[in-house]
C-alpha cells in the first residue's frame, strides 16, 4: 500500500467515528429542533400540525421572550465584567505579586467548579432566604429592625441576586486559565521591565495583558456561550423564572413552554432563537476582540 493511502486510512479511522457522533448528537438534533419550530406539537402525541412561521410570529409578539432575552444579556454582560475582572486580579495576585499562601488560594477559588450547579443554586437559595438566610441575618446586625428583603422575590433585586452565584461559581476556572497564561510568559521580559524601572502596574499593562490576551478572549467567548446556553440551570433552581416571569431567561422559558405548558413546537422556536443569538454574539465578539497577534521571538 502506498504511503498516502495508508495515511488516508489513518485519518479516516480517527475522523469518521467522531464525525458520525457529531452528526448523530449535534447536527441531527439541531436539524430536528429547527424542523420542530415549524410545527404545533404538544410533545406528547404522534401527530404534529405544520403551521409554517406561526411560532415565529407568536414569538415576536410574546413580551416574556423580550424579558428573557434582556435578562440573558444582563447576565452575559455583568458575568463577563465580573468574572474577568476578578479572575484577572486573582490570577495576577497569585503569580506576579508576592501573596502568601498562593497555592491555597488557587485551590479555594477553584472549589466552586467541582460543586454541581444544582448544589450551588440550593446553597445560594439559603443565603438569600428572607427569614433564615445568611444575607439578611448579616445585614440585620447593622439595622434596628430585622431585614426581610426577599432578594429572589422582588423584580429589581432578583436578577442581580442570580448574578452573584454565577460569578462566584465562574471565577475559579477562568483564574486557572489566566494563571497558566501568565506562567507561560518568559520571566526575562519582567526582568527587563524591572531594569527599565517599570512599576507593577506598568508591567501588567505592557507585558502581562498583551501576552495573555488570547486566553482572555477565549475566556470571554466561553462565558458568553455558556451563559446564553446554560443560565437555565441556576435560574430554574433558584426562581423557576418567577416571580411573575421577571427572572425568565431564554432557556428557562423554553423549558416552561415545552414541558410545563405543552408547546414543544414553540419551545423549539425559542431554541432556534438561542442558537441564532449565540452565533451572532460570538461572531460579533470575535470581531471586536481581535488584536494583532504578538509574537514572542
Amino acid at each position: 500500500m502506498k504511503q498516502s493511502a495508508r495515511r488516508r486510512i489513518f485519518y479516516a479511522v480517527f475522523l469518521l467515528p467522531t464525525f458520525l457522533f457529531f452528526c448523530v448528537f449535534t447536527l441531527y438534533p439541531i436539524f430536528r429542533g429547527v424542523q420542530l419550530s415549524f410545527f404545533d406539537w404538544s410533545g406528547g402525541t404522534k401527530e404534529m400540525d405544520f403551521i409554517g412561521l406561526d411560532n415565529y410570529r407568536e414569538m415576536l409578539r410574546d413580551p416574556i421572550v423580550g424579558t428573557a432575552v434582556a435578562n440573558d444579556y444582563f447576565l452575559v454582560l455583568f458575568k463577563v465584567i465580573g468574572i474577568m475582572l476578578l479572575a484577572t486580579i486573582f490570577a495576577v495576585a497569585v503569580t506576579r505579586l508576592n501573596v502568601r499562601g498562593k497555592n491555597l488560594y488557587r485551590v479555594l477559588f477553584f472549589i466552586p467548579n467541582v460543586i454541581s450547579v444544582v448544589v450551588i443554586g440550593v446553597l445560594w437559595r439559603y443565603v438569600y432566604n428572607p427569614n433564615l438566610g445568611f444575607l439578611n441575618s448579616f445585614l440585620s446586625l447593622f439595622t434596628a429592625e430585622r431585614v426581610q428583603t426577599a432578594w429572589l422575590g422582588e423584580p429589581h433585586t432578583a436578577m442581580p441576586s442570580l448574578l452573584w452565584p454565577s460569578i462566584w461559581a465562574g471565577i475559579g476556572f477562568y483564574m486557572i486559565l489566566l494563571v497558566a497564561a501568565i506562567l507561560s510568559i518568559p520571566s526575562d521580559l519582567y526582568e527587563a521591565a524591572d531594569l527599565d524601572g517599570a512599576s507593577q502596574w506598568r508591567q501588567f499593562l505592557s507585558v502581562t495583558l498583551p501576552l495573555m490576551w488570547e486566553q482572555m478572549k477565549v475566556s470571554i467567548l466561553h462565558i458568553v456561550m455558556t451563559t446564553l446556553n446554560g443560565s437555565f440551570i441556576l435560574v430554574w433552581i433558584m426562581t423557576e423564572g418567577g416571580p411573575d416571569n421577571s427572572t425568565q431567561v431564554m432557556g428557562s422559558y423554553l423549558y416552561q413552554m415545552g414541558f410545563r405548558q405543552y408547546h414543544m413546537g414553540y419551545a423549539a422556536t425559542i431554541g432556534v432563537l438561542i442558537l441564532v443569538l449565540s452565533l451572532l454574539t460570538t461572531l460579533i465578539l470575535q470581531r471586536v476582540l481581535k488584536r494583532d497577534t504578538i509574537e514572542m521571538a
Partner: peptide
C-alpha cells in the same frame, strides 16, 4: 409574610 414570594 414579605419573604413568601421567594420561597419554594
Amino acid at each position: 409574610d414579605p419573604g413568601a414570594v421567594s420561597l419554594n
